[in-house]
């Protein structure tokens, strides 16, 4: 098998443990002063690409990984997650600065990624199956379409054979095994692996790794938006319970609610 040049796109999103709040104007989710982290699915992608490289330590026949590039299109702060990706084991970072207000749609990201793939001669792109902020779940598929490459989405296991890549994906009521040849696109699902922690020595090393900064115009692209967000609303609030003093209180409350 030819050696691997892996591209891993990562996205900076509101930390998944934080409860998002809709802004007053109901046009978007509040992002100022809210903790952001790497999209959890993208952590899986980085982890998997590093594991693919580490396999070579144990199995001579495992594919050689020439390079792992972490890529992010997003606001200046996206650098933080690129550093995390590099601390986890990516070799270098590529940051295309896109301000939050000009955020790209999945097709925009896919078009950009196509150029990045060409530029970096990547032959394997591992993406998260979705990002938890907009939940579009489209980028990997669109990129596969634009490149005309095979794709295996929602991977829960990836194995490299002599000439093919085998991907197990979880489907309703069972699993499906796919086989394809490089170059290809894989999107990751929850059970693929458990991402490692960023160790202090690696965090320090990551600071010295190369991080290129580019703009959309460097790729001859522009933010062309096709969708308009009409309104963002919170799910209806769950009604809290009430405490009653005693049995009489409960009976009268139940009567009040028409349950008795």
């Amino acid at each position: 098998m030819s050696s691997l040049r892996i591209l891993v796109p990562v996205k900076r999103v509101i930390d998944y443990a934080v409860k998002p709040r809709v802004n007053r104007a109901q046009t978007a989710v509040e992002t100022a002063n809210v903790k952001h982290s790497m999209n959890p699915f993208d952590e899986l992608s980085i982890e998997e690409s590093v594991r693919i490289r580490e396999q070579k330590n144990h199995h001579k026949s495992a594919p050689k990984v020439e390079e792992i590039v972490a890529f992010s299109a997003g606001p200046p702060k996206s650098q933080d997650i690129l550093r995390t990706a590099m601390a986890m084991g990516a070799d270098r970072g590529l940051h295309v600065v896109v301000e939050e207000k000009d955020a790209l749609e999945p097709l925009g990201v896919a078009k950009l990624l196509k150029k990045v793939v060409d530029e970096n001669k990547s032959n394997l792109v591992i993406l998260g199956k979705q990002s938890i902020d907009d939940d579009a779940g489209q980028t990997g598929q669109m990129l596969a379409g634009l490149l005309n490459w095979p794709q295996a989405t929602q991977a829960s296991k990836i194995t490299f054979n002599d000439h093919t890549v085998e991907v197990i994906r979880e489907v309703d009521g069972g699993v499906e095994t796919l086989k394809a040849k490089l170059p290809m696109i894989i999107t990751t699902d929850l059970r693929l692996n458990e991402p490692r922690y960023a160790s202090l020595p690696n965090i320090m090393k990551a600071k010295k790794k190369k991080l290129d900064k580019k703009t959309l115009s460097d790729y001859g692209l522009d933010t062309e938006l096709r969708l308009k967000t009409v309104k963002v609303t919170e799910p209806p609030a769950r009604k809290g319970g009430v405490k009653v003093e005693d049995v009489d209180g409960m009976i009268s409350k139940l009567k009040e609610l028409g349950a008795l």
């Binding site: 998944y16 443990a17 790497m38 959890p40 020595p201």
Partner: peptide, 25 residues
């Protein structure tokens, strides 16, 4: 924090360490 962590690693006050990258960690 970064300066502190670098310092304790370099001066070998701590042998190894990790820094949580998100709320889950």
């Amino acid at each position: 924090l970064e300066k502190f962590l670098e310092h304790v690693m370099e001066t070998e006050v701590v042998q190894d360490g990790i820094l949580a990258q998100d709320q889950t960690q």
